[in-house]
Simulated scan of single mutants.
Amino acid sequence: MLTTYFQPILNLQSGNCLGYEILNRPPVSNLFPNAESFYQFIGHTDQVFTFERFCREISIERFRDSLTTERYPDNTVVFLNIHPQVLADSTYRSGETISLLNSYGLSPEQVVFELTEKQAVHDYIEFERILSNYRSQGFKSNPNLEGVAVMGKQGVSLMMRARFFQQIGTQYGYNLYMGRPVELVMNARALVVDYAEQITDVSVLAINRSEEELYDLVLITADDVLYGAVSIRRLLLAVADVRAEMAIFMNLLTGLPGNRIIDERLYQLLQLDDFSVLYIDLDHFKSYNDSYGFKMGDHLIQANC
């Protein structure tokens, strides 16, 4: 008997739950000490689609039940794993998934299909035909995917969508790369930074990359574990926001706290029983400005700060 787990998928920036990946796990036995060995065995049989259909049925059935028992929102999204070899199974029949969803009152917009990472797709023409069929039934693809992070012994690498298609789309690209390790098309020297790095520092590193990698994602880690990724566009927008925030709170000429911060700090001090305030001013500064001009006056202010 398979046990079904609902693994939450979180937005690392907002903390919101995007949905749940449904995982079906067999009981541990001498023949199958772990789930991986069990699914590898299934993949080498002629019952891939039969078992896939069974897993899909219990997954959707148990998910429908969980909407009530766990009080998940009715529009909760689920992620279902698909074995690539299901496409080559002679028992594969179109339309079964949409019928199953309809029977439980669920919509295609609530389902995301994931190809299991343990197997490769070999017949891409047939695979695309199956995807087109799913799209025609209301299932959605993800055209906004920019890249994929690859975890390996050497750390975190990156495969950008645009570069992948550039390599595959060459005259011999398909025959050269398909069915071979992903390391041939990934960037093992991707920009990887710690999540505690300052936004402005990361933006300098990103902009100083080679022209070929300039628009690649920046990978974020925390304690050497992949934490997330950010596009160069979002990074530059964040830098602009930081500078705008600084312009509000800081004096542009001196870089020292501006009137807003001073006012807030004084208000906090007034709540205390004892405090001290030191006020510093430049004597005869107006006369200096009148005599030597505003530019020299600015230099004098900067020199004193």
Rank of each mutant, 00 (worst) to 15 (best):
F164T: 01
F164Q: 03
F164L: 14
F165W: 09
Q166N: 15
Q166I: 04
Q167W: 04
Q167S: 04
I168V: 13
I168S: 00
I168T: 01
I168P: 00
T170E: 11
Y172W: 09
Y172S: 11
N175S: 05
L176P: 00
Y177A: 01
M178N: 07
M178R: 01
G179A: 03
R180Q: 13
R180S: 05
P181S: 01
L184R: 14
L184M: 15
V185D: 02
A188V: 04
A188H: 09
L191I: 01
V192A: 00
V193Y: 07
D194Q: 10
Y195W: 05
E197G: 00
I199L: 09
I199S: 03
T200Y: 05
D201S: 14
V202S: 06
I207W: 11
N208D: 07
E211C: 06
E213R: 06
E213F: 08
L214R: 12
Y215T: 07
Y215P: 00
D216E: 11
L219E: 03
L219F: 08
I220L: 15
I220W: 02
A222N: 10
D224Q: 13
L226I: 09
Y227S: 12
Y227C: 10
G228W: 07
G228K: 06
A229W: 02
S231R: 03
S231Y: 06
S231L: 04
S231M: 04
I232N: 07
L235W: 04
L237E: 13
L237P: 00
A238S: 11
D241L: 02
V242R: 15
V242K: 12
V242A: 13
A244W: 00
E245L: 14
M246Q: 14
I248K: 09
I248V: 15
M250N: 02
M250Y: 08
M250W: 05
N251W: 08
L252H: 15
G255H: 04
G255T: 11
L256D: 05
P257M: 13
N259K: 15
N259H: 14
I261Y: 09
D263K: 15
E264N: 06
R265I: 07
